[in-house]
Amino acid sequence: MTTGSYIESIGIKLPDKKVSTQSIIDKMKLSPPIQLEKISGIKERRFCSGDENTISLAVDAAKDCLTYSSINDHDIEMIIYCSISKFKSDLSYYYEPSISTIVKQKIGANGALSFDISNACAGMATGIHIANDFIQRRVVNNCMIVSGEFISNICNNAIQSIETSPSPEFASLTVGDAGAAVILEKTANENGFEVLNLQTFSKYSKLCIGKLSTKYPGAQMFTQMQKLQKVSISESPSFVEQSLREAGLSYSDIDYMIPHQTAKRAIMAGAINFKEYFGYSPKEIIITVELMGNTASTTLFLALYHQLQQKKFRKEDRILLLSFASGLVMGVIVFKLNELVDKYGQ
């Protein structure tokens, strides 16, 4: 079964400033009891500097996306902004007006219908879910889903705050800043999404809480890492199986899986669990945390973009994006790449 839209183009923005895991550990009052780099697989991540912020990351990603798109900026009909963070460079946090209003003006899509959504790390996946419905019903012909995650302040605050071990702020040490944008366009043929399924498992909603800090500028994130990982691993295979089955697919139809990029060891544990459950493993489980860390709502599209640039995929490859987020939100997005592969890695 195909649905009414497909990924027409993807764009990203990574800040230039690189920050190594070792430099983060060196700044901490307390040495982590775990080998952070070995377990997370993260060697470095990017941090905003100077005037970079949530909006600039989103705008630069949107502009990059438009360079690969056949749709002009002023022809974008809808913009959904999806980040967790809404920080300006001075770490002031904007509640209103919506960031989407600002982004659309900055990229020249003034006539676009726009709003912000917030669904933790599943923000962009949720945006795709909503956009596809609008396109399917012909309310709009295209939609840009965009996010700018300026979350390095969570890491910086954890460096100052962690004084005991274990600490619920250890997961904060893995994050990095990035922007990502995706344009969906209507399709009348077989190019559309094969699976788009998101679900909230709210009994686990308190396993990860992020809030603006009252101690430091920016935010702090408190995660029950082991519980969250255990729940994600135990709940996800049956959710994926059900999502695929409803579309007449099975896990063995998947060529590549791109899971939410948290930490290498967690992703590998999930991959082993999937192999045991399904008795099959895709050609590759994509892991890109090594040089970017966990960039929240943008991770899936950052990973997809980099693999496209490296010409990793063929047109007929079927990709599964597996979204995990605080909430607990799980999302499955399945599609074939088709012409998207021709636009990247030239």
Binding site: S98, D116, Q199, V329
Partner: peptide, 12 residues
């Protein structure tokens, strides 16, 4: 069920 937040000031 899918639960999420939508923010657009008073127009959300």
């Amino acid at each position: 069920i899918l639960a999420f937040d939508l923010n657009n000031g008073a127009c959300g």
